[in-house]
Design a protein around this nucleic acid. Structure first.
Length: 833
RNA sequence: GCCGGAGUGGCGGAAUCGGCAGACGCGUCGGUCUCAAACACCGAUGAGCGCAAGCUCGUGUGGGUUCGACUCCCACCUCCGGCACCA
């Protein structure tokens, strides 16, 4: 491979810039010296910087570089500011791809995973990040998942882990549970035998995340991107309203409870709808309707809930033969079953108010059910459409004693009356469901439970952890976990009676692993406990967390749930896992498309590092644009950054004998350079703190240009010029750690540049002594004044009015107004304006 | 459908509080170096008009507020992301 460098041919000065000659050496030195190890005993203020650990899929791609460089820069900035920084890295190494590799290629998941980790770890090292590898965690290692299992048991004891029936896809011919991706086609058939699948209720493990729904709506004290907060808020989906009981006309039948956010519309409830799964469907179906209802319910159960929700909006459903009574109007209303009512939300049953709900309206229109308006729109009753009241202005009509009451008031009034009548009361409902954590998969942490014929589900005693995944398993594309046929694994004994028991074969969702890895980093080698409480108290919460926004309602919520639950168990003393959260965007291909092998637009970081060095790759990624937006890769762009680093190289290389040592003193030039230096310190510091890496790099480029011009003007080698170069290296060090270290050493600086103090800007020195002031006439730029910074406003006004460019428009007349923004501009308003 | 985010030169982008639009970089053009090229370096570079001074236009579209609008308000268009029958 050819290495093109900025000065390969000739600049006539200094040594050529070739990152290949020093980058690896410095990385080795940092490693040997333990420069990046965060010491628990270090008394400096702590700073925990964390980036989401990767799944070990194979090779590091450019996205990993993009994701890691920014938090590395932040970690390095804090370190130079005198903080004890922990910046750990590890691998989220359980998961489906390893299992698929086993099925497709016959490789053992553990071996496949370990090989990938080895490769990615060595690729990670070429980034030159200050990762503390002594703290590495690997979640598929028994020393890690032992504690994942231990945590499961703590949740179980606390009542936060429970077992319940949940619907899964089942192939009745093969007699197996199918994963979502194993169900094909619109008719939902088994991928192997083509038999239509059915939904089947199986026992599954859940974590009670809904216990924390309300608390997770609070984001006080958190500096998170607003879109993530909104996504979580919407996902939790808190709705306030009322539960209302509708008595049923049938012997001994329980009333049907419904949840509604609009109790003010109860007078308009002209029918009821039950979800197909609702327990009352069977008992309330009359004999003449049974056949039709059972057919409908059976068809509905064949679809997944996801499918049902994304299906065409056609509102299907059947009448079940029974009637309920509207508790306010005392009217008989028919009960229907329809799959647009979801079993998992509210009570799985609704009062249908077609006049004031789109879905109920569509259903009523299709099935010819009565529509009664009970809220008066401001501009008269609508025809042929529902009216969804929004404001407080609308008033109730046709609603008995509540007629004439504003809708907003009626919500409370009607809810109170229902409560007085014992027919309901205020209620809150959430979209959030409990977290289904069990997976019918091999490559995950086994759920530490055994089933005794006598005593049922029993937790594995803690001293028997870990429940180790057996490695001598066979893989076949059956869709069944090989654990189910591994006799040695299955065989267990009941911790209560000692009788033969059967081991749980489900493993945990990998999001369980990642819900606590940031705690394990604090004491990764502790084999006595999941974490050392003192170390966790010292480091947590995470100060800055970075990663992709795709985890908004997954990992980023699960980890919050974990921390809150563990806090309530007395194991943690903080409320949130991380304070500052920042999301990176995506690096796209040259064609502005997502990188993918099939598109052939993948950028290989290893090749780029070999060609330009790690620093150039890092710096260019940061320069592409705002970090949270990502952007397209540009092969020419990295050339520009490489040129910049080459320029820095030549500016900072110690001058050979007789170079610019005897620089001419020029006070004006020196003052300007010093001003540029201090303005850059202030600007770069603010940019890095705010994750504005692209503008920070631009400012560094400007400073390098200023230094070069100053040198060309003859002040190279002067004290101020030397300070400017040193400052440039210090400010550039977090983003380009290798070249700055090399140059710092060559200039005789103390090892290491990354252990030096971050420069401080002197505001007095950053201020310009003369300023150029734009002069506008009626808001249009017409002239510029160069004045000293302390020129009084009257003098500026006089100079501006005296300008011939201004006079051309003023033609001797007095201005109508003169507006000055001190230090910014002058605007003269003519009588014409 | 609902909730977010974004539309600025040939391209990526900058303008942090309503005050010089286009920083910085890429590309392009011109020059230096070279036998020549590549590399590097220097200079120019929003569009139109003009010999020039300079003028006009210009931040998705249409209105508005203001001495002044990429920035604020109203209405709309397009793209990207999330959710999607949640009663």
């Amino acid at each position: 491979m050819t290495t093109r460098t900025a000065d390969q041919a000739r600049t006539g000065r200094g040594e050529r810039f070739d990152p290949g000659t020093y980058e690896q050496q410095w990385r080795d030195r940092w490693e040997t010296d333990g420069l990046h190890h965060a010491d628990d005993a270090d008394p400096k203020p702590k700073r925990y910087v964390l980036t989401m650990y990767p799944y070990p899929s194979g090779d590091l791609h450019i996205g990993h570089w993009y994701a890691a460089t920014a938090p590395d820069i932040v970690a390095r900035l804090h370190r130079m500011r005198g903080e004890n920084v922990m910046f750990p890295m590890g691998f989220d190494s359980f998961g489906l791809p390893a299992e698929n590799a086993a099925i497709d290629r016959g490789v053992d998941p553990a071996t496949w995973t370990a090989d990938n980790i080895d490769r990615m770890r060595s690729q990670f090292r070429t980034m030159g990040c200050m990762f503390d590898w002594e703290r590495e965690v690997v979640t598929s290692d028994p020393s890690y998942y032992r504690w994942t299992q231990w945590l499961f048991l703590q949740f179980y004891r606390a009542g936060l882990a429970y077992r319940a029936m949940a619907p899964v896809d089942w192939c009745p011919k093969d007699q197996v549970v199918l994963a979502r991706e194993q169900v094909e086609g619109a008719d939902r058939h088994c991928w192997r035998c083509g038999t239509p699948v059915v939904k089947r209720d199986l026992e599954q493990w859940f974590f009670r995340t809904t216990n924390y729904a309300d608390e997770m709506l609070g984001f006080e004290g958190l500096d998170w991107p607003e879109p993530i907060r909104l996504m979580q808020t919407n996902w939790i989906g808190r709705s306030e309203g009322a539960e209302i009981e509708f008595p049923v006309e049938a012997d001994g039948a329980e009333p049907i409870r419904v949840f509604t956010t609009r109790p003010d519309t109860v007078f308009g409830a002209t029918f009821m709808v039950l979800a197909p799964e609702h327990p009352a469907v069977a008992s309330l179906t009359t004999p003449d309707r049974r056949e039709e209802v059972e057919a409908y319910v059976g068809a509905a159960r064949r679809q997944t809930e996801i499918e049902r929700m994304s299906a065409e909006r056609e509102k299907t459903g059947v009448f079940i033969g029974s009637h309920a009574v509207n508790p306010m109007t005392q009217e008989r209303i028919p009960i229907w079953v329809a799959d647009y009512v979801l079993p998992g939300y509210g009570t799985g049953a609704i009062m249908a108010v077609p006049a004031h709900d789109d879905r109920d309206y569509a259903f009523a229109a299709k099935h010819d059910l009565p529509i009664r308006y009970v809220v008066q729109p401001p501009d008269g009753m609508p025809e042929g459409q529902p009216f969804i009241a929004h404001s407080a202005d609308e008033v109730l009509v046709d609603s008995g004693e509540f007629t004439g009451m504003p809708a907003s008031e009626a919500i409370g009034a009607i809810t109170r009356q229902l409560a007085d009548l014992g027919l309901g009361g205020p209620a809150v409902s959430y979209k959030l469901r409990d977290w289904l954590v069990s997976r019918q998969r091999y490559w995950g942490a086994p759920i530490p439970i055994v089933y005794c014929p006598e005593h049922g589900a029993q937790p594995v005693p803690e001293d028997q952890l870990p429940v180790v995944l057996p490695e001598d398993v066979g893989f076949a594309p059956t869709g069944v976990s090989p654990l189910q046929s591994h006799e040695a694994f299955l065989k267990a004994s009941c911790p209560i009676c000692g009788a033969d028991a059967r081991r749980e074969t489900d493993t945990m969702d990998t999001f369980v692993d990642s819900s606590w890895y940031f705690l394990r980093y604090c004491s990764p080698h502790d084999d006595q406990r999941a974490w050392d409480p003192e170390a966790v108290a010292r480091w947590l919460p995470v100060d800055v967390y970075t990663g992709g926004a795709e985890h908004a309602v997954l990992h980023l919520m699960y980890a919050r749930f974990f921390v809150k639950a563990l806090r309530d168990m007395g194991m943690l003393s903080f409320d949130e896992p991380w304070i500052v959260l920042r999301n990176q965007g995506q690096i796209l291909g040259v064609d502005h498309q997502r990188m993918s092998k099939s598109r052939g637009n993948v950028v290989n970081p290893d090749e780029l590092v070999a060609r330009y060095g790690s620093d150039a790759v890092r710096l260019f990624l940061m320069f592409i644009g705002p970090w949270d937006q990502g952007g397209p890769w540009n092969p020419m762009g990295i050339e520009g950054v490489h040129r910049f680093l080459g320029r820095v190289w030549h500016l900072a290389l110690p001058e050979p004998e007789g170079g610019h040592a005897g620089a001419l003193a020029d006070e004006e030039l020196e003052r300007a350079l010093r001003r540029a230096t201090h303005a850059t310190i202030a600007g770069v510091t603010a940019d890095l703190e705010a994750f504005r890496f692209n503008t920070a790099v631009a400012k560094l480029m400007e400073l390098a240009n200023a230094i070069q011009h100053a040198r060309d003007a003859g002040i190279g080698g002067s004290r101020i010029h030397t300070e400017a170069v040193d400052t440039l290296l210090l400010l550039l060090a977090p983003a380009a750690p290798h070249v700055t270290e090399e140059l710092w050493a060559r200039r005789g600086g103390a090892y290491s540049i990354h252990a030096q103090a971050w420069p401080e800007a002197d505001p007095a020195l950053a201020v310009a002594d003369t300023i150029e002031l734009p002069v506008q006439v009626d808001g249009k730029l017409r002239d510029r004044l160069v004045v000293t910074a302390d020129t009084p406003a009257e003098e500026i006004e006089r100079l501006a009015l005296a300008s011939e460019h201004v006079q051309r428009y003023l033609t001797g007349r007095a201005p109508r107004r003169v507006i000055q923004v001190p230090g910014k501009m002058v605007n003269i308003v003519t009588p014409d304006a």
